[in-house]
Design a protein around this nucleic acid. Structure first.
Lengths: 201, 201
DNA sequence: CCACATCTGTAGTGAACACTACATATCTGG
DNA sequence: CCAGATATGTAGTGTTCACTACAGATGTGG
């Protein structure tokens, strides 16, 4: 038995284009017509490869999380909790205003509130954000064990805090805030982590 | 000339119901059928009273901003910048997890990313958020003039920061974070404002 | 070269959407 | 009580949506 006609497009390249459309218009705001045009394929190819619109979103999120994960590994490699927060938030300020991508963060722009039939999309995004938060929390737990964070500090709360600031910055970026404004927010935000650090300079 | 048949529903009560639908499903996710059912009226009444779907959203936002403005006045009445931030963020933690309302904040849930034809909705929401930020900024400018905030502090950046944290908390609330989690975020966030304060205890 | 499997493009499908025409009902001013 | 004006309920309108049937194209294994 034969193996059939080979696909004429590259799935990852197409996913990058789809990611951009979801990023810019959100899950519900993105139409199949926009997606297929950006991906350079026709609807049947999309459905054969990704199942349906939600399957395409999940594939795009997988790709986004993968790239993001590499960067997060560099972030948590910083020597102190304060520097982790600084690297993360200042880095996010730059990433979310990078003209190479739509403004903001796909994990926020993708869909915060959705209509009937797409209720699980916001939870899907939240689950991805939670992964980042978990990674931060683990890093802050280590920082506390190393005596870098105060014995009274709450690593989970700190991680939630940094995650919340990231999300807030993403919304600001998508509604027009420029890089300098986001960097200012990041700088102020880092001071809360610094206040929980032991050897503050 | 007569004045016509009087309307049989109360516009403000109907707006409250519409507000809840937009809050829960977002602008694009909310359908006219859901809105009219929640408001207890039929489509022609909705269109006669509010023009179109976007007009209804703006009316709901006006109402939301009005209620919110009353509360913000109480917030900025706190004696110090630190207490302003604390009142604001802890209050938001409670409000965004109040079971009487959908979780989160209408100014975020309403629509962060929208599809073609609704591009201005996110900007409309951003403009409302900016009003709160301006109010905070003015309060922090005063705090700096009063010697409550350090001479090196940047009131505008502080206001942006508090606003960003609020938004981030709203997203967290809408994706299932409970009140305690939000309060922890608020507590950490306040420490950044405290770090900019003069008489820190 | 043939049977088979998979992809691709065209051209739709039914459903859901925002919005409205129209007839009827209920008010005010004279 | 009548004329004008506005609201209401029924029942649609055209459009757009996610998704797909189908026929032809292009590959592999025998």
């Amino acid at each position: 038995m034969g193996m059939g006609r080979p696909r004429e497009f590259d799935a990852e390249t197409a996913l990058d284009q789809a990611m951009e459309v979801f990023w810019r218009h959100g899950y519900e705001g993105a139409t199949i017509a926009q997606l297929t045009e950006a991906m350079g394929i026709n609807p049947p190819s999309l459905y054969a490869c990704f199942g349906n619109k939600e399957g395409l979103l999940k594939a795009a999120l997988d790709r986004y999380s993968k790239l993001r994960g590499v960067w997060m590994d560099e972030v948590v490699a910083a020597p102190t909790a304060r520097e982790v927060a600084e690297r993360m938030l200042l880095g996010i300020a730059d990433k979310q205003t990078d003209p190479a991508n739509p403004p903001g963060c796909l994990l926020v722009q993708g869909g915060i509130a959705c209509g009937t039939g797409s209720e699980n999309v916001p939870f899907e995004l939240a689950a991805r954000r939670a992964e980042n938060e978990d990674q931060l929390r683990d890093r802050f737990i280590r920082a506390k064990a190393e005596g870098d964070l105060k014995p009274t500090s709450d690593p989970a709360a700190l991680a939630r805090y940094v995650s919340a600031v990231s999300v807030g910055m993403g919304v600001m970026a998508s509604s027009g805030s420029d890089r300098e404004a986001l960097r200012q927010v990041a700088s102020v935000a880092v001071q809360a982590v610094e206040a929980q650090s032991v050897g503050r300079t």
